[in-house]
C-alpha cells in the first residue's frame, strides 16, 4: 500500500509540474519541446507505463488507470494551449495586415453610351411599349421628301421655319427634320396601319451657339390608321411625357403651326426644376416646350398613299438633345458632338 501511495504521489507531481511548465509556454517550438518532455516516450508519464510490469499484478489496473488519466489530462491541456496559441498568433498576424481602406480601389474601365444614345433609347423604350417601332431613313434627302411631299412648296413662307443646307446637287438637301421618314414609312407600309418612331440626325443652316447646333437628333412619332383622333394624339403624348418626366407632371397642348399637320400643337410640360413657379431654365414661364405635334395633314396622308377620307393619323417631333439639356441642366448644346471626355464621362 505504501508503494501504492508513492506511485500516486509521483503521478500527481508529474502532472502538476507539467501543467505549470505548459502555462509558461508562449510559442509553437516551446510547445513541441514540452510535448517531447512530458508526453514523449521517455517522459515520466510514459515511463510509468513501461514500469507497470514491475508492479504487483493486482495493483496494475489501478496504476494503469491513474497513469492514463494523467496522460489524457496533459494531452487535453496541450490541445487547449495549442488552440489558444494559434488564436493569438492569428490575431497578431491579422492585426499586422490592416489596410488603409480609404485608399482608392482599382477600377475596371467603365464603358459608356453617349448621352444622346441614352436619351434616344429611353424614348424608344417608352414608345415601344405603346406599339411604336423604330424606322430610320436617310440623312441626305431630296427637296421633294424634305419639303414638297410634306406640304411645304418652294417659296412658301413656311420654308422660313427651316434654315436649310443645300448640296451642290440641285434638289438635294441635308434633311432639316426626320419628317421625310413619314413619307418613306407610309409608302412602305400603306395600306397597313402605321405606328413608328423616326429617330435620326438632322441639320440646320444656323451658326452654332450655346443653344443652337447645325446637327441634332430628332425623333418623330407617326401613327396612321382608320380611327385616330386628336384626342389620341393628346393621350399618347401625355403618357409619353409622364413616363419621361414623372407620373404627376402636368402637360399642356398649345395651338401651333406646322405645314404637315393640322390641327397643330406644341406640348409643354410643367418645369421640373421650379415646379411651374418660373425659373431660369423655363425662362420664367413655368413651362418647358418639349415637342411639336398635330394631326397628319390630308395632303401628306395622300402623298404617303393613304386616302384621307378613310385614314387619319397624328405626328409629333421632339429634340432629344433639348430634353437632355433640360433634364441635366447642360449649359451648352455644343458639348454633345464636342466629345470632350470630361463631358462624356459624366453620363
Amino acid at each position: 500500500m505504501v508503494q501504492d501511495e508513492q506511485w500516486a504521489t509521483d503521478l500527481a507531481a508529474i502532472e502538476e509540474q507539467a501543467l505549470q511548465a505548459l502555462a509558461k509556454i508562449s510559442d509553437e517550438s516551446d510547445l513541441q519541446a514540452w510535448r517531447t518532455l512530458h508526453l514523449g516516450r521517455s517522459s515520466a508519464v510514459m515511463q510509468t507505463f513501461t514500469r507497470l510490469g514491475q508492479a504487483p499484478k493486482e495493483q496494475r489496473p489501478a496504476l494503469g488507470q491513474a497513469a492514463n488519466r494523467v496522460k489524457q489530462a496533459l494531452e487535453s491541456a496541450l490541445a487547449l494551449r495549442e488552440q489558444a496559441l494559434g488564436q493569438a498568433e492569428l490575431e497578431r498576424s491579422l492585426s499586422s495586415e490592416r489596410l488603409d481602406v480609404t485608399l482608392p480601389g482599382r477600377q475596371p474601365h467603365l464603358g459608356r453610351l453617349h448621352i444622346a444614345t441614352q436619351t434616344l433609347r429611353e424614348i424608344y423604350r417608352v414608345f415601344a411599349e405603346m406599339g411604336f417601332q423604330v424606322y430610320r431613313s436617310r440623312e441626305v434627302e431630296t427637296d421633294a421628301f424634305n419639303f414638297e411631299l410634306l406640304n411645304i412648296p418652294a417659296y412658301h413662307p413656311a420654308r422660313d421655319m427651316w434654315d436649310t443646307f443645300h448640296t451642290t446637287t440641285p434638289g438635294v438637301v441635308l434633311r432639316t427634320h426626320t419628317s421625310p421618314g413619314q413619307i418613306h414609312a407610309m409608302r412602305e407600309f400603306a395600306p397597313e396601319p402605321v405606328r413608328v418612331i423616326l429617330p435620326g440626325m438632322c441639320y440646320r443652316y444656323e451658326q452654332s451657339s450655346v443653344r443652337h447646333e447645325i446637327q441634332f437628333n430628332q425623333v418623330e412619332v407617326l401613327a396612321v390608321g382608320r380611327g385616330i383622333t386628336f384626342g389620341d394624339l393628346k393621350g399618347t403624348l401625355q403618357e409619353f411625357a409622364r413616363r419621361l418626366f414623372g407620373q404627376n407632371v402636368r402637360t399642356r397642348l398649345r395651338p401651333s403651326y406646322f405645314p404637315f399637320t393640322e390641327p397643330s400643337a406644341e406640348m409643354d410640360v410643367e418645369c421640373f426644376v421650379c415646379g411651374g413657379a418660373g425659373c431660369q431654365i423655363c425662362k420664367g414661364s413655368g413651362w418647358l416646350e418639349i415637342l411639336g405635334c398635330g394631326m397628319v395633314h390630308p395632303l401628306v396622308l395622300q402623298n404617303g398613299g393613304y386616302d384621307p377620307a378613310v385614314y387619319s393619323g397624328f405626328a409629333a417631333g421632339m429634340g432629344p438633345e433639348r430634353m437632355t439639356i433640360l433634364r441635366y441642366r447642360i449649359e451648352d448644346i455644343r458639348n454633345f458632338w464636342g466629345n470632350d471626355v470630361r463631358f462624356l464621362e459624366q453620363f
Binding site: E192, G225, G231, K234, G235
Partner: peptide
Amino acid sequence: IPATRLGDELPP
C-alpha cells in the same frame, strides 16, 4: 378635348 389612348388596330 379629352385625352384618349389609341384604340386603333395595332400594325404588324
